[in-house]
């Protein structure tokens, strides 16, 4: 679509979007440039002012992101969801086989407990006071119960 460009409209474009044609709306750019090239003297003043303002705006320093701000933003970002290997690492376990060592330790502990337990029990020295306390707490005599079990 070809736009008809007038002097007034071109001055508006220059004053609004700046001296560089690349900043003008695309639909009007070609027509604007054609008119400008045909009669540069008509737009010289508007162009000079616009260019000066463009330079002033272009000279503004870009604010810089501080490291602290960047890190604060990164720290607030989503965290990865923990996968199974991550969970293992979290508990200090390096391989999926590592939990097996835990089971072995637990089984060994249980075995030792069961085999050693009967040796100590009814034969233990239990003072009369302690025995009395146990009877009053449980409602029956644990030493007598243990002896019955053995018989």
């Amino acid at each position: 679509m070809t736009h008809t460009m007038t002097d007034d409209r071109l001055i508006e474009l220059i004053e609004t979007w700046g001296a560089e044609a690349v900043s003008w709306p695309e639909a009007e750019r070609a027509a604007g440039k054609t008119l400008l090239l045909a009669h540069p003297e008509r737009f010289a003043s508007a162009l000079a002012q616009a260019r000066e303002l463009d330079q002033m705006l272009g000279a503004l320093p870009e604010p810089e992101m501080s490291r602290a701000l960047t890190e604060a933003i990164v720290a607030a970002a989503p965290r990865p969801k923990m996968s199974r290997p991550n969970l293992l690492r979290w508990f200090g376990l390096k391989t999926p086989w590592a939990p097996a060592s835990g089971f072995v330790a637990a089984a060994l502990g249980l075995f030792m407990g069961l085999t050693v337990a009967p040796v100590a029990s009814a034969e233990d020295d239990m003072t009369a006071e302690v025995q009395e306390l146990v009877v009053s707490a449980l409602g029956f005599d644990t030493a007598a119960y243990a002896l019955e079990e053995l018989e």
Partner: peptide
């Protein structure tokens, strides 16, 4: 990737877009 917690993607987004936002 950033939504899934990919640290590199998060940092890339911050580096790419934060100056414009701050500006």
């Amino acid at each position: 990737r950033a939504a899934a917690g990919d640290a590199a993607a998060v940092r890339a987004i911050v580096n790419r877009y934060s100056p414009g936002v701050l500006g």
